[in-house]
């Protein structure tokens, strides 16, 4: 595990991105932060700033305007990062998948690591999703290190 990995698992800071959601999932995400469910028990804090965040919690389907925003926010998050898609819309677009201005779920734009089904999912389900996603951190960190190593080697080769 290592100190770093334990820390990563115990301190996932989230950024909540509302793409084109109906608010149902959003209020359940917020509810998960409040006393009754209190995800701060797991070190989860809503930082609201991609540069600090480790986990992106996406609600809703994606339309062309939010696709741009979502991509941008995702790019601004430092590695290792996870994406948790909430709700039916977060998976496939849900009931809105056939709308003219809906591209589909967030996975059309960015890689999504875990999906939480439900419309909207209960806060308990969101907690389950977060806990399941945290297990992926170790692999993500490893991938990040390898990527950095490769970049360094490439830079060396060029020089």
């Amino acid at each position: 595990m290592g100190l770093m990995n334990t820390s990563r698992m115990k301190s996932p800071w989230i950024i909540h991105v509302n793409c084109t959601a109906c608010n149902g999932c959003d209020i359940e995400v917020v509810a998960a932060l409040t006393p009754m469910f209190d995800v701060e028990r797991f070190g989860i804090v809503n930082v609201g700033n991609p540069k600090h965040a480790d986990v992106m919690v996406v609600t809703g389907c994606v339309n062309p305007k939010t696709a741009r925003v979502l991509k941008n926010i995702y790019d601004q998050m430092p590695e290792p990062k996870l994406v948790l898609a909430i709700g039916a819309c977060g998976g496939t677009g849900g009931i809105f998948a056939e709308c003219y201005n809906v591209l589909g779920g967030p996975d059309k734009v960015i890689p999504v690591d875990a999906y939480v089904p439900g419309c909207p999912p209960r806060p308990e389900a969101i907690i389950d999703g977060a806990v399941a996603a945290l297990g992926l951190f170790e692999a993500k960190a490893k991938a990040m290190k390898e990527k950095a190593k490769k970049a360094a080697e490439k830079a060396k080769a060029e020089a």
Binding site: V17, N49, P50, K51, R68, V69, L70, N72, I73, D75, Q76, A151, A155
Partner: peptide, 26 residues
Amino acid sequence: GKSADLRAPYLCGENIDSDLRGAEFM
């Protein structure tokens, strides 16, 4: 500092992609 580590400043997600200075938003 390498350009690979560079990110545009946070503009609420409305950065214009090519603008790494963060001087413009949509």
